[in-house]
Amino acid sequence: MIVRRIQALGRSGLAFVQDAGHTSLFLFNSLVGRPDFIHGTERLIKQLYFVGVLSLLIITLSGLFIGMVLALQGYTTLVKFGAEQALGQLIALSLVRELGPVVGALLFAGRAGSALTAEIGLMKSSEQLSSMEMMGVDPLKRVIAPRFWAGQIAMPVLSLIFTAVAILGGYMVGVEWLGVDSGAFWANMQAAVDFDTDVVNGIIKSIVFGTVVTWIAVYQGIECEPTAEGIGRATTRTVVYSSLATLGLDFFLTAVMFGDT
């Protein structure tokens, strides 16, 4: 009984190491090689449109609502202590440090990550990737690399837009509706948010999340079982793994960045 458990543990350990090696090799093969600037830029812009621009609507709308809710919740608590002047600081810090990168990444995984997996999976199941290979064109470089870079670039930008819109939403509710002083709202925010520790760390977080989410999405796409069911499962896995990885990494990064302050 115990031996069998140890065996199972060993097996899953080996499988994990193998998977990790496989995904790393996959990423390495996709990204390393002679860059083709002319065609590469063209493909990157196309993917940036699909991954980034098309995610704008959900990112801005969600940002707006999150900012509004934050202001509402923050105000009802702060006003009990007569500290509603600190609303700007509360909203900005929680958005810049946490909610912007994290919620941005979760939305990005749901909107762009799942689309990437489904698209690549469908290309695989309809033999488009195979036919590309047979034409002497490496699908890792032609299909995966531009999508990966696009995700990498789009995620931090989306996260910044999310944060900015959310702060605006917070302003609308806090200042325009609930009557917090506009000057205090912005002045406290400016005084409390430090560019190097807060904004830069937030951007670093979103770059890390962007990398991980896009990596998971393209890998799940290319490794999926090429059937309708397989693509469905791979898409689900992308969203689940990306969300868990984002939240887990967020804790780790927060501990490293802000743990000792």
Partner: peptide, 19 residues
Amino acid sequence: LYKVRRWIGMLFQSGALFT
């Protein structure tokens, strides 16, 4: 291998056109 494939053409059952 990618070099050799340039002078091999293959027609897949589904056509495999880029959609």
